[in-house]
């Protein structure tokens, strides 16, 4: 019982510390926005460098959904709904969630490791002693880059999965669904609120992944083991939070 209580206590203390850290970052955001060069640099490392993995995964997910969808819809003689089946699944769920999971593994872990190593090699302390606030100079630009990148990558994922190279390639070009029906159904059935739902989800996942990765890096023990633990925790915690949060958001936006 007391052991459980101490685990709960540690968890709450950690959550409190992380929340305080998030507030510190949010307060540093206006200053960081005045230095777009630092943000652009991070957008390249965090966003552009994640492009390939997102494009490839999006395409594969589109192919898989088209194959699975066609199989199921054939049973009901409803293959004309293949386009909307692929699009709805991708826009509402697959794009935000899979992109977030891949992003946590690709960019979140890299951020945690980079910041953790900067701490271990006294670079953050050195900055502080030069009267440069590492939260403003290092943490905030990376956090902003995550917030901007994830929704954009999610959109790219969705386009790849639904579009010419993805679901369309399998459904229309390979399995013979009519091209007009494929796009017409998507046009008729996918509403603006589906897209907004997707954007809200990816924005929330961006906050969570950005928050977890910079927190884990900044508070990593300054040793090789500490950095390794921070990297692992970033991926594990981000992934679990993303799927958990996805359920909560889906339930709220369910109609």
């Amino acid at each position: 019982m007391s052991r459980n209580r101490s685990v709960l206590g540690d968890f709450l203390r950690g959550l409190g510390g992380a929340t305080f850290f998030l507030i510190t970052i949010l307060r540093a955001l206006p200053g960081a926005l005045l230095r777009p060069r630092l943000i652009l640099q991070q957008l390249y490392y965090v966003g552009v460098m994640s492009l390939i993995i997102i494009v490839i995964s999006g395409t594969f997910v589109g192919w898989i959904l088209a194959l699975q969808g066609f199989r199921t819809l054939t049973t009901f003689g409803a293959t004309s709904a293949l386009g909307v089946f692929v699009a709805a699944t991708v826009i509402r769920e697959m794009a935000p969630v899979v992109t977030a999971l891949l992003f946590a593994g690709r960019a979140g872990s890299a951020l945690a490791a980079e910041i953790g190593l900067m701490k271990a090699t006294d670079q953050l302390s050195g900055m502080e002693m030069m009267a440069v606030d590492p939260i403003k100079r290092v943490i905030a630009p990376r956090f902003i880059a995550v917030l901007i990148s994830l929704p954009l990558l999610t959109a790219i994922f969705a386009v790849m999965a639904i579009g010419w190279a993805g679901g369309h390639l399998i459904g229309v070009d390979l399995l013979g669904v009519d091209q007009g029906t494929y796009w017409g159904q998507i046009h008729a059935q996918i509403k603006l609120h589906d897209v907004i739902e997707s954007i809200i989800k990816s924005a929330c996942f961006g906050v969570v992944i950005g928050w977890i990765s910079v927190y884990q890096g900044y508070f990593a023990a300054p040793t090789s083991e500490g950095v390794s633990r921070a990297t692992t925790s970033t991926v594990v915690m981000s992934s679990l939070t993303v799927v958990g949060l996805d359920f909560v958001l889906t339930a709220f936006m369910f109609r």
Partner: peptide, 8 residues
């Protein structure tokens, strides 16, 4: 700093 603490 003893390590130099240069930004890598």
């Amino acid at each position: 700093f003893q390590s130099g603490a240069l930004l890598t």
